[in-house]
């Protein structure tokens, strides 16, 4: 086996024991992984080609009909549209905020640890708690509307068609953007930590050289930091896109399994839940799951192409 050193003389019995011990220690986790991960992958593919009753099992073999139905399902189409809209806006927004926070926290300033702790704070709470809090803040008589009214900003919002007591999560025009801002706020702390790890890998000598050449901080950031963070960008973007395409919790909590209002919060994963538990159609739900997997996998491959092969990846 790779990595196995030549057995020492007289170590034969020990080697056999070691093998047995090795298998014994990994047996339970491997059983879990084989049944609940790898196995379910194939089971999902099997279920997807059947009309399946949630209690009694397979009813009728339907081949690829579940997949054909996906192509013409209007709710699935709005789920894909919403999910892509969410990902395309949320990922760059959160990356920008996360990078900004990382650069700020990376400076040699007093209270650096405290700032880092504060910026990461919104990421520690549960999605349910933080979403409920957010729904309260953006409710018609909530803090957000009260504060913008007190600051005299209402004419500006009026210009965009939002009244003084706008229900930001209940209005189909605003609901998804409200969720985007919420998740950008909570996840920017996590992205900050990812970027910090990359920032700290950049040698100080590069900046000293740039300073000698007369570069100011702004130039140093755009000419040195930003390009050198390429592996960091790739990592954060990949994690972000994978996470974005799977957005579920906030959509469920704010919009119920139906993606209210008017499908505005219907995402692909929420639709997967909906097809299984509201429409009670496991065969179709399995097909939706497989399509989601293909979308995520393709997105990851495209990113790999865009960013090229980066060191360490």
């Amino acid at each position: 086996m790779a990595g196995a050193a030549a057995p020492k003389p007289g170590a034969r019995i020990g080697a056999r024991q070691e093998t047995l011990a090795g298998y014994a220690l990994v047996a339970v986790p491997m059983l879990f992984f084989l049944v609940l991960n790898i196995g379910t992958f194939f089971y999902a593919a099997y279920i997807s080609v059947w009309k399946w009753n949630i209690r009694t099992g397979p009813v009728e073999f339907v081949g690829l009909r579940n997949f054909e139905r996906i192509l013409t399902d209007p709710v699935f189409q709005s789920a894909v549209k919403n999910t892509i809209y969410y990902t395309v806006i949320w990922v760059p927004l959160t990356m920008a905020v996360g990078l900004f926070l990382a650069v700020v926290v990376n400076q040699k300033i007093r209270g650096q640890t405290a700032f880092r702790a504060a910026f990461y704070f919104p990421a520690i709470a549960s999605s349910a708690a933080i979403t409920m809090l957010w729904i309260f803040l953006v409710s018609p008589y909530g803090l957000f509307n009260e504060v913008r009214g007190a600051l005299g900003l209402n004419p500006l919002f009026q210009f965009f068609g939002y009244g003084p007591n706008e229900n930001w999560i209940g209005d189909y025009r605003a609901a998804m953007n409200t969720v985007i801002v919420l998740n950008a706020w909570t996840t920017s702390g996590t992205f900050m930590l990812f970027y910090l790890a990359s920032l700290q890998a950049i040698s100080h000598e590069v900046y000293e050289a740039a300073a000698i050449d007369g570069a100011d901080a702004w130039q140093a950031f755009w000419r040195i930091t930003f390009p050198l963070l390429r592996p960091g960008h790739f990592f954060v973007a990949t994690v972000g896109v994978i996470g974005g395409l799977q957005v579920f919790d906030q959509a469920f909590i704010a919009g119920s399994p139906n993606g209210d209002p008017a499908n505005a919060l219907m995402t692909i994963v929420l639709y997967l839940y909906n097809t299984l538990f509201i429409q009670i159609n496991p065969g179709y739900a399995a097909a939706v799951g497989i399509v989601l997997f293909v979308i995520i996998f393709t997105a990851t491959l495209i990113q790999r192409q865009l960013f090229g092969r980066t060191p360490g990846w």
């Binding site: 991960n37 790898i38 379910t40 279920i47 839940y273 299984l276």
Partner: peptide, 16 residues
């Protein structure tokens, strides 16, 4: 197993 999203496992795990 890190590559397989939880969502893909939803239907088979629930049925199992």
């Amino acid at each position: 197993t890190l590559m397989i999203p939880d969502q893909l496992r939803l239907v088979p795990v629930y049925i199992l």
